[in-house]
Nucleic acid binder design. Structure first.
Length: 106
DNA sequence: CATCTGACACAGA
DNA sequence: GTCTGTGCCAGAT
């Protein structure tokens, strides 16, 4: 199915993130039961099903937006469309909009 | 099988 | 709070 690879599992979890909320590579990996936060980012970079999966909702644990297909500005614009406030590349009230690992559906 | 890479995270200064 | 170095995992070479 669409859930047989590490990458697909990560992308699938993105669909659970409500509008106006974001998650981090760390939390996302933790929700998958692994510590491969590096691999999560790498997986996204190799395959972005932009439009299919909201990969722009995945940011760094520090609250910075992070990279996005070499066009970080676009990631920021998309996040702003979600209603998020971004200040100098960092999400305002980051903790408020953060979708924690334990919030993901079991 | 060995080595490098990367949309990251954490510890130390 | 910042900056630098090291560790991490899965996939690619």
């Amino acid at each position: 199915m669409d859930n047989d690879s590490f990458q697909m599992r990560a992308l699938n979890l993105l669909l659970q993130i409500p509008k106006g909320r974001v998650t981090t590579y760390q939390e996302l990996a933790h929700a998958m039961g692994t510590r491969a936060y590096r691999a999560v980012g790498t997986a996204m970079a190799k395959n972005q099903f932009l439009g299919k999966y909201p990969c722009y909702k995945v940011v760094k644990s520090s609250g910075e937006v992070g990279q996005y297909a070499g066009e970080t500005w676009k990631k920021i614009e998309l996040l702003r469309d979600e209603g998020l406030e971004i200040r100098d590349g960092k999400i305002v009230d980051f903790k408020k909009v953060l979708f924690r690992a334990d919030e993901f559906k079991v």
